Amino acid sequence: MTVISKICVQLQFLFVVLLLFISTGSCLQCYKCFSTNRDCYGGNPRYLGILNCSSKHEVCATFQYQIDDSSASYVTTIRGCQPITKDGICSQLMKTKSNKNVVQKGILCETCNTDLCNSCTIKSVSFFTLPIAILLIILKI
């Protein structure tokens, strides 16, 4: 093998190693829905769509509003991408707004920054938490 061939092989190897360290940028993925139904409120991923956020300056968010008008009261849930603001995302959204006979009051605002992190509003207990809690209770008695 000639010197030039060895150099070409070494450069090819170096190029392949460098490719391993290059990653393509990707934006956050969030669950999306806008509804008053239980499927959106409960956050069951089977009933939610997936949204690719358009910017790296966004987070996944879940908002819930209570809307009262002269004839009814209901809760609306919104899940999706939300731009990060210097004042904080929830500070504006949680303010009570009123327009004639309709009052909109924020009752929940949660944000997170990992893919598909805004699924479930209802927090669950870990499988290991309950046995450990029972064991601690038994040991104290």
Rank of each mutant, 00 (worst) to 15 (best):
I4L: 08
S5C: 04
I7P: 08
C8D: 01
Q12H: 11
F13D: 12
F15P: 01
F15H: 04
V16L: 15
V16F: 15
L20P: 00
T24A: 14
T24Q: 14
G25C: 11
C27S: 06
K32I: 14
F34I: 10
T36W: 04
R38E: 14
D39R: 06
D39C: 04
Y41G: 03
G42C: 03
P45H: 01
Y47W: 13
C53N: 07
S54N: 09
S55D: 12
H57E: 12
C60K: 00
C60H: 05
A61I: 10
T62G: 02
T62R: 02
I67R: 06
S73R: 05
S73D: 01
V75A: 02
V75F: 00
Q82T: 13
P83H: 03
P83N: 01
T85S: 14
G88N: 01
C90M: 04
L93T: 07
L93A: 09
M94V: 03
M94C: 02
K95Y: 05
T96W: 00
N99F: 14
N99H: 07
V102S: 09
C109Q: 04
E110D: 11
T111P: 06
C112R: 02
C112K: 04
N113D: 15
D115T: 03
D115Y: 05
L116V: 04
L116M: 09
C117L: 04
C117W: 06
I122S: 13
I122G: 05
S124D: 13
V125E: 11
S126V: 00
S126F: 05
F127S: 08
F128K: 09
I132E: 07
I132T: 14
L136N: 07
